[in-house]
Design a protein around this nucleic acid. Sequence first.
DNA 1: GGAGAATGTGGCATCGTTCCCACATGAGAA
DNA 2: TTCTCATGTGGGAACGATGCCACATTCTCC
Lengths: 352, 352
Amino acid sequence: MGKDARTGGRSRRARVTLREVAQEAGTSPSTASRALAGHGYVAEGLKARIEAAAARLGYVPDVSARSLKGRSSGLVGLVVSDLRNQFYAALAAGVEQTLAAAGHQMVLVDDHGSDTQALDGARAFLAMRAAGVLLAPVGRTATELLVEHGTPVVEVDRRSGVRSCDAVTIDSERGAREAVSHLLELGHRRIAMVLDETVWGTGRDRLKGYRAAHRAAGVPLARRLVLDLGLRPADPQGDVAAFLDANPDVTAVFAANNLVAEAVWQELQRRGSAVPKDCSVVSFDDLTWMRIVEPGLTAVRQPVYEMGRTAAELLLERIAGERGRARTHTLEPEFVLRGSTSAPGTPAEQTP
Amino acid sequence: MGKDARTGGRSRRARVTLREVAQEAGTSPSTASRALAGHGYVAEGLKARIEAAAARLGYVPDVSARSLKGRSSGLVGLVVSDLRNQFYAALAAGVEQTLAAAGHQMVLVDDHGSDTQALDGARAFLAMRAAGVLLAPVGRTATELLVEHGTPVVEVDRRSGVRSCDAVTIDSERGAREAVSHLLELGHRRIAMVLDETVWGTGRDRLKGYRAAHRAAGVPLARRLVLDLGLRPADPQGDVAAFLDANPDVTAVFAANNLVAEAVWQELQRRGSAVPKDCSVVSFDDLTWMRIVEPGLTAVRQPVYEMGRTAAELLLERIAGERGRARTHTLEPEFVLRGSTSAPGTPAEQTP
DNA sequence: GGAGAATGTGGCATCGTTCCCACATGAGAA
DNA sequence: TTCTCATGTGGGAACGATGCCACATTCTCC
């Protein structure tokens, strides 16, 4: 009796299975499966009956069962470093858009810049038989684990160094070179560069570009002009303040990303420095606020959304079976001239 | 031969199953399952052997199989309207943070403000046996479908009107009332309100607050002062321009969200209106750029990240089996005074 | 008129895990 | 000694969808 109550009493709404749909339509699960999936022979009339039954019962196929039987779930993983940063949000939006159009869902993991958390995410993706994974790497371990298990991986924005996976990046060196060349052409000779990592990833390449621009212009480099805040700095604005105090001869600042640019901008405002008269500023990465502030920030715009889309497309091809060698797409940044740069000691020529 | 090549040739790395782990440890799958899951009796020594075997083989449990057998996958769905909007990005970040800490993955769907796409997302969540779903509703259908199938749902930011689900919102009416009262106290009498929907959701409540503030101050309302841009306006700044041309007597603008605030701000800058001397501005929602621009925007700060966290926590309780009646959490917004508001015709008193 | 396509349909094993249950074993109680 | 009971262990049936294969039909062509 008690047993009956627990077993027979279908508490809540039980899940509608394919078997029930088949029963309702007076046929077998096999046929129903074929009808609904659209593979193999099914008579037109029967197919319609099955579809009607499915609709009537509110049938929703079970992806767990499907992906257990088949090779993989339709899930695609994405690992980013900080979702609250507009950069990664835009990236995720581009990825989601492309995946959704192809009928895939996106599982989003925020690793907060930690390799360990990225690895946890990768393990979770493996466990859910993700069809593929996109990631902005913070180390090699996550990529390695996934590639080892045969999951297609596309790296975005940065490269972990694992050769066997596709990647989509933005030409950081070129963007930085253009930005710094612009400052040099304006006559700046003591250009500070502020970044949050110099060893690998985009920071390294942007630093390269900074140096290349100097070399090309025949302007000597001074190590003291490069400020490395370190990853996830506790008080970036304070560090910038100390740096500017120690290097009062700086006439222009090149900020390597939007976080750094914000710290620089706020600090210049705090100390009442006139931009660009007292100090020119260029940012790598162009966010909403940079075109809203007065003067607008001269910036290197990155096609972030497009990067997400491109990476997702590459991944979809791999998922579809593309087997060729690893490909790397490099997207071109765009230099956007606004009011925050001028010749040293000169107010902005234009107020757009 | 050809057949053998396809069947027998275990191309790539085959998935390690529990059976193989058990074999390696010299025991049965049942026992291995118990050892790894931590339920039921397993001798200490054997348990250690099984764990070692699992580690050695790089065993990753298959969630498809697990969730097929059990009730649900550990996946939690989140539906937002526009991931590129910092508001939703912060919301998603809060949700992700809480879910990840509890060992759940987040599947993110961007419905672009379309009910149909939200519904597609809901169906996908159902198909993947999502443990629960968080959504910023754009209609009732998605919530209804999920609730009907017994999936726990928590609505965020807005309410669809479906009574039987939890919700976490921000007190829009109160926030708007405070913002508009502030303007009224400063002496403004022709305060425009700009929003992108007035019929339901947050827009309706913010409009209520706008009206309530006027009533409380005994200031008559003028319908012409409310500008409804409509959802996803093609050229919001242009609409604001036309509106300001048609209503030149406006001395202050209350922008109902960050998108609208941006359009208003840009338009005021374009036409060279001095803020706050010519026109005061208050924004509902406080983004990064609002504290960076000069003067800073007076704004109603919403605890967005916290909203995401709270909603996720509520959902986790439901997933854990909480059965009580639907609960609604209302978070309090915070009025942040900056330089963009002053008495009509007066420059800002403070430049922070 | 019969071989053999072409067109439909259903049976059944399978995917990897869980978990109920049956079965061992040894200790302590009667 | 026989019985319970606690502690372990393994067998095997699900979970729901799929897709191979066998089996029915009907049709076509020599």
